[in-house]
């Protein structure tokens, strides 16, 4: 059993997202370690991209802050290497096709393995294009996380059958960002997944409160929270760590 699979054993997984390098790689490193101690089961680390089309304004701004601070993919790999010396928390990269492809997909996955990355989520590489990444992920043992959305319909079975690690279920239409209301589409999507494969399903997009997390974890195997945490980081800057830790602990406790 790999680290991602273990994260879902006999519990609901809480999966926070942060953008690497926002506000600095030093803070990101500390955040990862402290969020893991506070109960995060898997941590999603965003490699910032100049044009993140799946993100709402909160994470877009985090990407711009990180990039203007001089963060690069290589510096992020170095940070992950440092984290791995002190933490065993499952780490999943979240980024876009271009930073991976232009770096050299083989070289990128090789470095993921060396640094200790467990999986990767690439929202602009859908099922139909996954041969772009899959062979390299397999070669280096990096789990390629698939996504399903409320519009996936008949595609859900096809995607679920080949899914690995966990399935990222997009809760609602649109881009990332906190929402007051989250529709009930996810529950039905997860039911369809489980018809064809017994794979953990984590819900993301729009979840920001303990109440939402509790409700979503009622019918899923985990929840992913990004924008709500990135907002705290944006608000407190380098002093964000205790505030983020408190938020993560609160979310984990209600689930």
């Amino acid at each position: 059993m790999n680290r991602i699979e273990a994260a879902f054993q006999n519990k609901k997984a809480f999966i926070p997202f942060i953008t690497a390098g926002d506000p600095s790689l030093e803070v990101t490193q500390e955040l990862v370690i402290r969020m893991a101690e506070a109960g995060a089961d898997i941590i999603e680390l965003g490699i910032p991209f100049s044009d993140p089309v799946a993100e709402g304004s909160v994470i877009q701004d985090a990407d711009y802050r990180a990039l203007s601070g001089g963060v690069t993919t290589d510096k992020i790999f170095d940070m992950v290497t440092r984290i791995r010396k002190v933490s065993n928390v499952p780490l999943v990269f979240m980024t876009y096709a271009n930073p991976v492809y232009t770096y050299g997909t083989d070289h990128f996955m090789d470095n993921c393995k060396k640094a200790g990355i467990d999986g990767i989520i690439v929202p602009d590489v859908p099922y139909d294009e996954k041969t772009e990444l899959q062979p390299y992920c397999e070669k280096y043992g990096i789990t390629l996380i698939s996504m399903i959305a409320p519009t996936s319909r008949e595609r859900i079975h096809r995607i679920a059958k080949e899914a690995e690690g966990f399935l990222y279920c997009v809760s609602s239409m649109g881009v990332t960002g906190t929402r007051n209301e989250i529709g009930s589409a996810a529950e039905d999507m997860i039911r369809q997944v489980k018809e064809v494969k017994d794979i953990p399903c984590a819900i993301g997009f729009g979840i920001s409160t303990p109440e939402q997390a509790k409700r979503m974890s009622g019918f899923s195997d985990g929840v992913i929270v990004g924008s709500a945490i990135v907002k705290i980081i944006a608000g407190y800057g380098k002093d964000c760590i205790p505030h983020v830790v408190e938020f993560v602990r609160g979310m984990k406790e209600t689930m």
Binding site: D124, P126, Y127, D128, A149, T151, S152
Partner: peptide, 20 residues
């Protein structure tokens, strides 16, 4: 192989929400 290729170029690199 994905659809809409011109040699190695093209394809459908978009979020799952838009695939259908």
């Amino acid at each position: 192989m994905s659809k809409g290729r011109f040699g190695i170029h093209g394809g459908q690199f978009i979020p799952e929400t838009l695939m259908n």
